[in-house]
Write a protein that binds this DNA or RNA. Structure first.
Length: 288
DNA sequence: ACCCAGGGTCGTC
DNA sequence: GACGACCCTGGG
């Protein structure tokens, strides 16, 4: 595979920090020049923005234009989504103004499942470290710009990895969860291709919940951030709890806020765009 | 030194 | 359905 380049002109809703630091992905890192480099599927890519041009440069499997259009969700009209959400209330209007360049990436389902199992009760620097070590140990090496990068390991590449191997990578108590979920997928107890065919979000969600280490929050992240692409879910973590309490519920003690109450507000106010609303609110609360 | 929190889930009561 | 335990790391 050789290096390819693609330039995207006049793309609305495309800001690198908004996309890569809104919490949906863990493998994109900022460079000294402000560009970002990341690994996804079997690609390594650098993305930079100059004036109104987005410049993609990397090692790609297949045509880089098609790869980019798919992964960066370029065919979706984010302007329309933002217009709809902005009309709901001033809170959304404000947070959308702040994270106006967010796009939801089409990330590999398997990688998203494992990444968010790792995310449980964990912090972002450590999550990123674990995923890097996992990839370096069991993924495929790709050279780019004089450096080595590693693809996220496939289920097959993890076939012979045992629980203590995971523990050595720093996974902590998530070692068994990773081991069991990988086994379930290798044994075809869950068919990831088939999951994409199922229309009913509730059914897909219930299937995900059978995986070890996948609870309500992780399931919703998988539904929203992977190729499953469901915008009608609302992942609730500590930050979303905080922002929802601050803007809507206004309880003195955020820990006493009921998850059911948050869900009620989210689904009634944001409807089938709840997932997008979550991203703007999350990004605003984390960064502002 | 000690405690706390971090994109929660799981087992137990 | 509530509650504590769980691995590990960085910061106060």
């Amino acid at each position: 595979m050789k290096e390819q380049k693609y330039i995207l002109k006049d793309c609305k809703s495309f800001e690198l920090p908004h996309i890569f630091e809104c919490g949906q992905c863990f493998r994109w890192n900022i460079e000294e020049d402000g560009s970002y480099t990341g690994v996804f599927y079997k690609n390594v890519m650098n993305v930079r923005k100059i004036d109104n041009e987005i410049i993609f440069n990397g090692i790609c499997e297949g045509n880089i234009k098609e790869v980019v259009e798919n992964y960066f969700d370029l065919k979706r009209n984010y302007e329309e989504i933002k217009d709809k959400l902005s009309k709901i209330d001033d809170n959304l209007k404000m947070s959308i103004k702040y994270g106006n360049g967010i796009r939801i990436l089409n990330q590999d389902l398997w990688e998203t499942i494992i990444s968010f199992i790792i995310s449980a009760n964990n912090n972002i620097p450590r999550i990123k470290g674990i995923i890097e070590r996992l990839s370096k140990e069991y993924g495929q090496e790709i050279f780019f710009n004089g450096k080595s990068y590693y693809t996220f390991p496939t289920p097959q590449e993890l076939k012979n990895v045992n629980v203590s191997d995971y523990r050595k990578l720093g996974l902590g108590f998530r070692d068994i969860r990773l081991y069991e979920t990988t086994k379930m997928i290798l044994n075809n107890e869950i068919d990831l291709e088939e999951l994409h065919m199922e229309k009913d979000t509730i059914k897909v969600r219930n299937t995900l919940l059978t995986l070890s280490g996948v609870g309500p929050k992780v399931a919703d992240c998988i539904l929203l951030f992977s190729t499953l692409k469901r915008f009608d879910v609302f992942p609730i973590d500590v930050w979303v709890r905080r922002v929802m309490n601050e803007l809507y519920i206004k309880n003195e003690d955020e820990n006493k806020v009921n998850k059911k109450d948050i869900e009620k507000i989210a689904y009634e106010k944001f409807g089938n765009l709840a997932g997008m609303a979550q991203q703007y609110l999350f990004y605003w609360k984390r960064e502002a």
